[in-house]
């Protein structure tokens, strides 16, 4: 299989911050690849390098067999790019936005309607509404249509789900899966760890570096320490007590439960005994398999 994106030891610095340092990554054609990391991890800078908007200080990147620096003119028509903020014209209507971007890329809405039918279908009832008056979820869908309208080979989506509610996010991922099934290579970035599982493969990024690259399952398996989910009636006191416990390595809130990482060979019984001694009620402890967020947090700590 051909590589859609090859990144070799790319670095980029701005004034006093190293935004991306020594990143190497290969993404195959047809992959739905996720770049997962918090704000300031360097995701956006890496995206801008790949879509030919920034020149790397060091290293080289090839998209679709074309060098992002040398062949940028040839490359630009082949990629679709949706920047972090949904870049639409708020004073143009839904339809005007789409038809503008279509014309700019030398095509028409009709010519590529097939590709966006699913998504645009939901927007069509509002096609005369100004883009500025759309909800976050609808802006996101329109921006995706605009990025798709010229039938790109590779789609770059920079934080398409940030600030969008959980339902719209889920719908958005369903759309990406359908696009991906048609053979489109998609590189998407997100700060939401729970979205990582939607990707074929992911790269975890933090402060300009890549912490790990693997399938979501593979990333979860990187977590080696014993992990327990713990619950009791008084969550606040539970955190305090568990953090003070001699067997604890880390203890963080994870939804309903706390996730507790312990020294080796600690059992649920040990923990239960300790908590009962502290007068905790309704204690519930179970050993669990780590999720992506657990792995990410462990990797963050390993990298200091």
């Amino acid at each position: 299989m051909m590589d859609a994106i090859q990144i070799e030891q790319v670095s980029k610095a701005f004034a006093d911050t190293q935004a991306v340092s020594d990143v190497s990554l290969t993404i195959q054609a047809g992959e739905l690849f996720g770049l997962i990391g918090p704000d300031g991890a360097g995701k956006t800078t890496l995206f801008k390098i790949l879509v030919t908007l920034l020149r790397p200080d060091q290293g080289k990147a090839v998209v679709n067999g074309l060098d992002v620096v040398r062949d940028f003119r040839k490359l630009r028509p082949l990629i679709g790019y949706m920047p972090g903020r949904f870049s639409l014209y708020p004073d143009l209507s839904v339809e005007e936005n789409l038809s503008f971007f279509a014309t700019v890329f030398g095509t028409t809405i009709a010519a590529n309607y097939e590709l966006i039918r699913d998504i645009y279908g939901q927007l069509e009832p509002f096609k005369n509404r100004r883009a500025g008056a759309l909800s976050g979820g609808m802006k996101q869908k329109l921006a995706l249509c605009c990025a798709l309208i010229h039938k790109p080979d590779v789609l770059f989506l920079d934080e398409p789900t940030t600030g969008v509610d959980a339902v719209s996010r889920k719908e958005f991922w369903e759309m990406l899966h359908r696009l991906n099934e048609r053979g489109l290579t998609i590189l998407v970035s997100t700060p939401y760890m729970d979205e990582a599982g939607q990707c074929d493969r992911i790269a975890l990024m933090q402060t300009g570096r890549i912490l790990a690259v693997d399938t979501p399952g593979g990333v979860e398996n990187l977590f080696q320490k014993p992990l327990f989910a713990v619950k009791a009636r008084d969550t606040y006191r539970l955190i305090q007590d568990l953090r003070a416990a001699p067997f604890t390595e880390t203890c963080y809130a994870f939804g309903e439960y706390l996730h507790l990482t312990t020294r080796p060979s600690v059992t649920a019984g040990t923990i239960h005994g300790y908590l009962t001694g502290k007068q905790h009620e309704f204690v519930d402890i179970k050993p669990i398999k780590a999720g992506i967020e657990d792995s990410f947090m462990a990797l963050m700590q390993d990298h200091g």
Binding site: P38, T162, A253, E293, M300, Q301
Partner: peptide
């Protein structure tokens, strides 16, 4: 919004 998972939890603390 947008912070890493550890910072997010420290914030909830």
């Amino acid at each position: 919004g947008g912070v890493d998972p550890i910072t997010r939890r420290q914030f909830w603390d």
